[in-house]
């Protein structure tokens, strides 16, 4: 087989894996958007915040230690204990639920019936707030996150492909795990939405707020639940990305990566988020591989957006989004 083709295949495979991670972030957006019509820009920062909290818990860091030290002149940094990964994840999840509750009580309850664009701006404000808050709470240094996920090149795939094609594919173990987790998460979410009582209530709220209210569904409860779910998705995404490239500010930028995924797949469709993620993941890796060297590289920054933009011109609601019907 020609070398270029084999490289291309490897690029496609890696793109698929990256796409799954994009889809994971995009899922959080879709959940909130479907249930409350809020386009949650803070999703990426939530992932960052979750990952930071997780690291902070595991290493036993003292929250706000920097602030306390600055004000009182003390020198405290760590409690001196180390929590096991699973326990820390559970605790972080509790914090994300509390965060969801606070966000709902303090912000979005007061913004009911506002224009969608106002809600969007509010989430940008929330993103700024959480970013500063997270940094102040846990410090802004680059943290290493290790909850025991396998990392490094997968030897089995390397050896097998070497035998068949004479070239070993480089596939990261972490990507494989992430793909598996994302697939599980999607199946779980779909099952939850289809078969559980709360899931059905969530879909009812997504369909029509007032009708849902009139059959006795508590909007407040559903919203807190949806934000918690989004927090959970953010935590998973935070763990995956954090393990991959360290917990740092750039983690919050994955939200920006997820936006074109959403546009492509449609804001309201869970399968859309996944298919969109895969298309973007493969597309940008292939484009960088084939065209990138000709135009100076680093095309990954914008390719997804331009692809989504061109796509939207022909299909304004995305691949699987609900058809936009305009009434006067």
């Amino acid at each position: 087989m020609p070398d270029q083709l084999i490289f291309g295949m490897e690029v496609v495979l890696n793109g698929l894996m990256a796409g799954v991670l994009y889809a994971l972030v995009a899922l959080g957006f879709v959940l909130i958007y479907k249930a409350s019509g809020i386009f949650n820009y803070a999703q990426g920062v939530m992932a960052l915040f979750a990952a930071m909290t997780l690291v902070g818990m595991m290493e036993g860091r003292v929250p706000f230690s920097h602030l306390i030290n600055a004000i009182f002149g003390t020198e405290i940094h760590h409690f001196g204990w180390h929590l096991p990964g699973l326990l820390a994840i559970l605790l972080t999840m509790v914090i994300m639920v509390v965060l969801a509750w606070i966000v709902n009580q303090l912000i979005f309850r007061h913004l009911v019936n506002q224009e969608p664009i106002i809600l969007f701006m509010a989430t940008i404000g929330l993103a700024y707030f959480l970013e500063g808050f997270g940094d102040m709470m846990w410090g802004s240094d680059i943290k290493k996150l290790d909850v025991g996920l396998p990392q490094g090149i997968n030897d089995w795939i390397d050896a097998t492909t070497f035998e068949i094609m004479g070239y070993g594919f480089f596939i990261d173990n972490l990507d494989i795990v992430a793909t598996g987790v994302a697939a599980l998460l999607v199946i779980a979410l779909v099952a939850f939405a289809q078969y559980s009582k709360q899931g059905r209530a969530m879909r009812a709220v997504a369909d029509d707020h007032q009708a849902a209210l009139s059959v006795g569904i508590s909007l407040n409860f559903i919203w807190v639940m949806v934000w918690s779910l989004a927090g959970f998705v953010a935590l998973v995404a935070g763990i995956m990305w954090g393990t991959k490239s360290g917990v740092q500010f750039s983690l919050s930028l994955i939200a920006l990566k997820a936006l074109p995924v959403l546009m492509l797949g449609g804001f309201t469709s869970i399968p859309g988020a996944i298919v969109g993620g895969l298309i973007i993941g493969v597309g940008e890796k292939l484009f960088e591989f084939a065209i990138g060297p000709m135009v100076g590289g680093a095309t990954e920054n914008w390719f997804a957006y331009v692809l989504a933009l061109i796509f939207l011109v022909f299909r304004p609601q995305g691949l699987f989004g609900e058809k936009i019907i305009e009434r006067v």
């Binding site: 602030l67 106002i118 701006m121 404000g125 959480l130 940094d135």
Partner: peptide, 26 residues
């Protein structure tokens, strides 16, 4: 205060102000 703390606080305040503004006076 150290400058990085002030920068974090600035983020918090700007974010909170935006939310407060949107709630109180859109």
């Amino acid at each position: 205060w150290p400058t990085d703390l002030a920068a974090h606080l600035e983020f918090i305040i700007v974010g909170a102000l935006i939310i407060i503004f949107l709630i109180a006076e859109p």
